[in-house]
Amino acid sequence: MQVQSVDLINKTTLPNASNTDVGHCNAHCRMVLITLYGMVLLGGITGTAWMSCLMFKRNNQSMIATIVLNIMVLHTILLFSLPFRLSYYVLNVWEFGPFSCRLVSSIIYFHMYFTFVFYVAIVILRLLLYFKKLQMQKLQKCHVVVFSIIIWTVGGLIFLPFFFLQYGIDPSYLEQAQCFEFHKDLNQGKFIILNYSIIVIMITTVMTLFLIQMGVIVQLIKALWPDMWAHQEYRAQIKSFFFLLVIVVCFIPHHAFRVHFIQNYSEIENSELVLYNEIFVALTTVCCLDMLCFIGGVIH
């Protein structure tokens, strides 16, 4: 009779345990994230440091260089946060307190959306120059500096209140030694609307710019073939295409999966989606390798 009762307890408790544990990153998930974040940390530090030295030596004060400098600052902020993430996935416990968890978690989104804005700014700027809607002679470095200050100020005014008043403040988060699992917030309608709005804006912007950019490149190929690589205009548009490609590879998969995640996430039945979501979030950090691509000659 005692054996039967033990078996009954095991049958009733083990399924529930698997359902709750699957929401946390398992060993395989941690190994993927450790590898991905480790690669980004090493490659990002190398690329950002090397590009900084090159820009300092050349003393390039162009508009594009100023925007690239903003991107490098964003990469640096993210790279400082990655050791904390690696520590968590190696030790499988968060030892830095709930506020630090919220901060490190939010930095990855802060980096993604600010980087997206500066990537798009480079693409739009080069398109405007190509279509003669903007003249290089009329633009000065101060204009881009002012633009950068506006982006950081507006972004800060949006990000800081959201971080302190809304992000990850559910009391249940304070009761666990886990981190980066703020998916319970998606049960709130305002966060669902916010996520859908961001997804629509990002995908629409990328698709529109991608089509325009491809049209420009095709026109340049027709006009300059076969010596298009000898022309600065063609190389500039290819660089813009590279930034769009980074967005498509690193940012769009996360947002496309986000739609599926919001629609199908259930804390009990589909909590394995949390694991996939963490991997897609980690994929957004791969954009930190963009400077290595420039240095390595992929976009020369």
Results as ranks from 00 to 15, higher is better:
residue 298 V to Y: 07
residue 188 Q to C: 02
residue 231 H to D: 04
residue 66 T to D: 02
residue 163 F to I: 06
residue 20 T to N: 13
residue 27 A to C: 06
residue 36 L to P: 01
residue 32 V to Q: 03
residue 190 K to R: 06
residue 218 V to A: 03
residue 275 L to G: 06
residue 217 I to Y: 02
residue 196 Y to S: 00
residue 32 V to E: 02
residue 288 C to Q: 06
residue 290 D to V: 05
residue 246 V to Y: 02
residue 279 I to N: 01
residue 233 E to T: 08
residue 272 E to T: 13
residue 206 V to C: 12
residue 77 I to A: 12
residue 269 E to Y: 13
residue 72 M to K: 08
residue 137 Q to N: 15
residue 33 L to S: 05
residue 90 V to P: 01
residue 151 I to N: 02
residue 88 Y to C: 07
residue 194 L to C: 00
residue 58 R to T: 08
residue 2 Q to H: 11
residue 237 Q to K: 07
residue 229 W to C: 03
residue 211 L to H: 11
residue 151 I to G: 02
residue 15 P to T: 10
residue 248 V to A: 12
residue 56 F to S: 15
residue 288 C to I: 09
residue 225 W to M: 03
residue 234 Y to N: 02
residue 204 T to I: 00
residue 181 E to A: 15
residue 44 G to R: 13
residue 146 V to H: 04
residue 175 E to D: 07
residue 86 L to S: 08
residue 153 T to R: 08
residue 169 I to E: 05
residue 274 V to D: 08
residue 178 Q to F: 08
residue 265 Y to I: 03
residue 267 E to M: 11
residue 259 V to W: 01
residue 260 H to I: 08
residue 140 Q to R: 12
residue 282 A to S: 11
residue 125 L to H: 14
residue 99 F to G: 03
residue 126 R to V: 14
residue 131 F to M: 04
residue 243 F to R: 05
residue 55 M to K: 14
residue 56 F to M: 15
residue 90 V to T: 11
residue 244 L to Q: 04
residue 94 W to H: 06
residue 18 S to K: 08
residue 148 S to E: 10
residue 270 N to V: 08
residue 58 R to V: 04
residue 103 L to S: 02
residue 21 D to G: 11
residue 30 R to N: 13
residue 200 V to H: 00
residue 132 K to E: 11
residue 173 Y to Q: 05
residue 125 L to P: 07
residue 282 A to Q: 04
residue 91 L to H: 07
residue 105 S to Q: 04
residue 206 V to M: 10
residue 85 R to I: 06
residue 12 T to A: 14
residue 169 I to L: 14
residue 125 L to Y: 15
residue 17 A to R: 13
residue 300 H to L: 02
residue 127 L to K: 08
residue 120 V to A: 07
residue 79 L to Q: 10
residue 231 H to P: 00
residue 238 I to N: 03
residue 138 K to R: 15
residue 131 F to R: 10
residue 189 G to W: 09
residue 228 M to S: 01
residue 114 F to Q: 07
residue 49 A to W: 13
residue 89 Y to I: 03
residue 283 L to P: 01
residue 88 Y to K: 10
residue 261 F to S: 04
residue 90 V to N: 07
residue 288 C to M: 10
residue 99 F to W: 12
residue 34 I to K: 02
residue 130 Y to G: 09
residue 178 Q to R: 09
residue 80 F to E: 12
residue 75 H to M: 13
residue 163 F to H: 09
residue 99 F to K: 10
residue 71 I to E: 08
residue 139 L to P: 09
residue 194 L to R: 01
residue 3 V to N: 13
residue 216 V to M: 02
residue 109 Y to P: 00
residue 277 N to P: 00
residue 40 V to H: 11
residue 103 L to R: 02
residue 137 Q to F: 12
residue 246 V to I: 15
residue 182 F to S: 06
residue 150 I to D: 07
residue 156 G to N: 06
